[in-house]
């Protein structure tokens, strides 16, 4: 996310904050990992490396499942970019109007990029499931409501992981022209380029932001990092998008493995650096 450190200009303040071209000393940031709700385990001691780097592991995630219903996928996609959906489930009993106001603020105040149609569906979902009337009935315990996150499927289903993407790239992989680039018909082209496979892993791990063009259409959006997903999940979703909608792995290109993802993590690129990699590869 180094791009954003190119610092904000205090416009209109008559004062230009000195540009921060980097975050000094920032060594690792924003790393999250799945935690287990409902059972507190005694953490093992860690061994510390010598030297000037002071760090800990990834921050565990304890995100309760959202309620089932139409629009849930959109909420998962659009409302997990800046924070987890725990921000939704933690709210107290609010009247329905709150959610309309809230989603409007996410878009207008915080810069969430959500097409108007989807925003409507998101509001409808939140009003159907997270208002006073709908929550009063909730009797389950915090643990029960979160238990779904503790059951882990042994083999990862790429289609399931792709649920994280459909809000933007759409279920049919066609994306939204001008907002979210298509994956259908394009992933094999990227895979055919030398280095394209690594690039795709990087997009998932570190995100992508800035001006790009794809199939002659311009985009200037933010693809959030999915570094919080497990290596297996990233490999699975990449295999899924490589083989859906008439996409297929080009000759000589093997399926994505969790090992490849694991190795790529070490690079710790910024979304800006991923954009640079894309330019170098000449992806269009």
């Amino acid at each position: 996310m180094k791009k954003r450190h190119v610092w904000m200009v205090l416009l209109g303040l008559g004062l230009i904050a000195l540009a921060q071209s980097s975050m000094p000393g920032l060594n690792r940031t924003g790393e999250y990992t799945q935690g287990t709700l409902g059972s507190i385990l005694l953490p093992a001691p860690v061994s510390q490396a010598e030297g000037p780097v002071y760090g800990v592991g990834a921050w565990p995630l304890y995100t309760p499942d959202l309620k089932e219903g139409p629009g849930k996928d959109l909420v998962t996609a659009y409302c997990s970019v800046c924070h987890s959906t725990t921000y939704i489930t933690m709210q107290p009993a609010m009247p329905a109007a709150y959610w309309e106001n809230n989603v409007g603020r996410m878009i207008n105040v915080f810069g969430a990029t959500i097409p108007a149609d989807d925003a409507k569906k998101i509001i409808a979902y939140l009003q159907a499931h997270y208002t006073l009337d709908t929550r009063k009935a909730e009797t389950g315990s915090a643990v029960a409501s979160a238990s779904a996150t503790t059951t882990q499927t042994p083999t990862v289903d790429g289609a399931k992981v792709y649920q994280n993407c459909i809000g933007c790239h759409q279920a049919n992989g066609q994306g939204v022209p001008g907002a979210f680039p298509a994956l259908a018909g394009r992933v094999p082209e990227m895979l055919a380029i030398k280095g394209g496979k690594d690039y795709l892993i990087q997009v998932l791990l570190f995100g992508l932001s800035g001006q790009i063009s794809a199939k002659g259409q311009n985009y200037n959006g933010v693809m959030p990092s999915f570094g919080q997903l497990k290596d297996e999940e990233i490999a699975a979703v990449l295999n899924y998008v490589s083989t859906q909608w008439n996409n297929s792995l080009p000759q000589g290109v093997g399926a994505f493995t969790s090992q490849e993802v694991k190795l790529a993590r070490a690079a710790k690129l910024s979304a800006q650096q991923v954009l640079e990699a894309r330019t170098r590869l000449g992806i269009k």
Partner: peptide, 25 residues
């Protein structure tokens, strides 16, 4: 408030900066 929380900080490059309307940044 925001989710990019440092997991590791390298003190060989971390610096506290004092800047803006000062005699000596």
């Amino acid at each position: 408030h925001l989710d990019e929380i440092p997991n590791a900080i390298d003190l060989s490059t971390w610096r506290l900066a004092v800047e803006g309307n000062v005699d000596k940044p």
